[in-house]
Design a protein around this nucleic acid. Structure first.
Lengths: 194, 194
DNA sequence: GCTCCATCTAGACAGTGTCAACAATGTGGA
DNA sequence: TCCACATTGTTGACACTGTCTAGATGGAGC
C-alpha cells in the first residue's frame, strides 16, 4: 500500500507520523532524549511546530514511540545472537554480548528504553508490553536450558534469570556511562558464567 | 566559624549555597533531576531567580553538587554495611544489599549519581572523583578477600569486581525502574554468590 | 459539487535557562 | 574614618520550550 497522497507537499504530508519519528530518531543518535525538543523535530520534518500534536498526544508520547522502536531493535539483536549460537552457556553469553553491544552502539536509544519519563515500566504502552514479554520469554528459555547444565544444576531459574538480567543490564549501563571500559564486559561475563 | 553575617535578611543570605542545595534536595525526593528548575529552587530558598548564578555556574552545576551529596550517602551506606558484617561472602552480600537499598530508598538521588547530564563519568568533579575512588577501593578490598574463599579461588579479581558491580548496579537500576520486584533482589544475589 | 473531517498553520501563554545592568552590603587599605 | 572594591543580591530582557485555542486547507464520500 503506497502512501495515500503526496501531491501537495505543503498540506497533508502523507506519513508525517513516521517522518516525525525518523527525524527524532536521527536527533537521538547525537543527544539524549531529554534534550530533544518537539519543535526541533517538527522543523526537521518541515512542518509547523504544532503539527506533531495531531499524531502524538504530547512530547512524551513521541519519545515513547521512539522507545518502542529501540526496544524492538534491542530484542531483535538478542534473538539473532541466540539463533546463531549453539550451546546453552554460549547462547546466554551471546545474548548478553548482544545486549551490551546494542547499548554501546546506540547509547541514547538504550537509555530511552529505560527512561521512566517516557517508558515507565509500570504502565507499558500497548506496543511496548509484548516486546517486554517476548524478551522475558527469550531469557527464560535460555535459563531453562542453562539449569540443565551440571554447573548450574539446582539453581532457581527465576532467581538465576533475574541475576543474569541484572548483570547484563548493569554492564550495559556502566559501559554506556563510561564507568566500565567496553573491553571489561566480556571477561566479567565469563567470570560469572565460567 | 559562624555564618559571617545574618543582620539583613534581604541581602546577603548567609549561606545561600547550602540553602539552595537543601531546597533542591527536597525537590529531588519527589521528582527526577530533569524536572527540577533553577527558578523553583530559588523560589523555595526565597531569593530571586538569578541569585543561584552567584554560587553555581549554571543549572547543571547545582545538580552536579547534589549528585556529589548523593554519592557520599551511597558510599557511606556501603561502608556501614561492610563494617557491621563479618565473613567475606556475607560482606559482599551486605555491600550489595546496601547499594540496592539506597537506590530503593532514594531513587531520584540514585539516578542523579549516574545521570550523564549532571555527573559525567568522563570528567568527574573535584568533589566526586575521590568518592568514586573510595568506592572502588571498598569493593576491591572485599573482592580481594572473596577470592581467598575456595568457591572463588582462581577468579580474576578485576573481572570479578566488574561483574559484581554490574550485577548490583543492574539490580538497583531495575528495581528502581520497577522492572524487577524489590523482593527478587536478595535471592538473585544469593543465586550468584551462593 | 458540497459537506465533513482529518490534517496542518498561526498565534498566544506561561514557564524555563541565561545574559546584562544595576543595587546593596561587607571588607581592606588610605 | 572614609572610600574603592569584591561579593552577593535584584530586576529586566531574550530566546526557547510545551501546549492550548482558532482558523485554514484539502481529500473523501455523499
Amino acid at each position: 500500500m503506497l502512501p495515500v497522497s503526496r501531491s501537495s507537499p505543503a498540506y497533508h504530508h502523507g506519513n508525517l507520523q513516521a517522518a516525525l519519528e525518523d527525524a527524532a530518531l536521527e536527533l537521538l543518535e547525537n543527544q539524549p532524549a531529554a534534550r530533544i525538543s518537539l519543535r526541533e523535530v517538527a522543523r526537521r520534518a518541515g512542518v509547523s511546530h504544532n503539527a506533531p500534536y495531531h499524531h502524538f498526544g504530547d512530547r512524551a508520547a513521541l519519545l515513547g514511540a521512539l522507545g518502542v522502536r529501540a526496544m524492538a531493535d534491542l530484542l531483535a539483536a538478542q534473538e539473532e545472537a541466540v539463533a546463531r549460537t549453539s550451546g546453552p552457556v554460549e547462547r546466554v553469553r551471546a545474548l548478553g554480548a548482544a545486549y551490551v553491544g546494542y547499548a554501546a552502539a546506540h547509547p541514547q536509544a538504550f537509555a530511552l528504553i529505560f527512561d521512566p519519563e517516557y517508558c515507565a515500566a509500570g504502565q507499558p504502552s500497548q506496543e511496548m508490553a509484548p516486546l517486554i514479554a517476548r524478551n522475558e520469554e527469550l531469557l527464560g528459555g535460555q535459563v531453562a536450558e542453562l539449569v540443565e547444565e551440571p554447573r548450574f544444576a539446582g539453581s532457581d531459574p527465576a532467581a538465576l534469570a533475574a541475576s543474569l538480567w541484572s548483570t547484563v543490564h548493569g554492564m550495559a549501563t556502566l559501559v554506556v556511562l563510561g564507568h566500565l571500559p567496553r573491553e571489561a564486559a566480556e571477561p566479567a561475563l565469563v567470570a560469572l558464567l565460567g
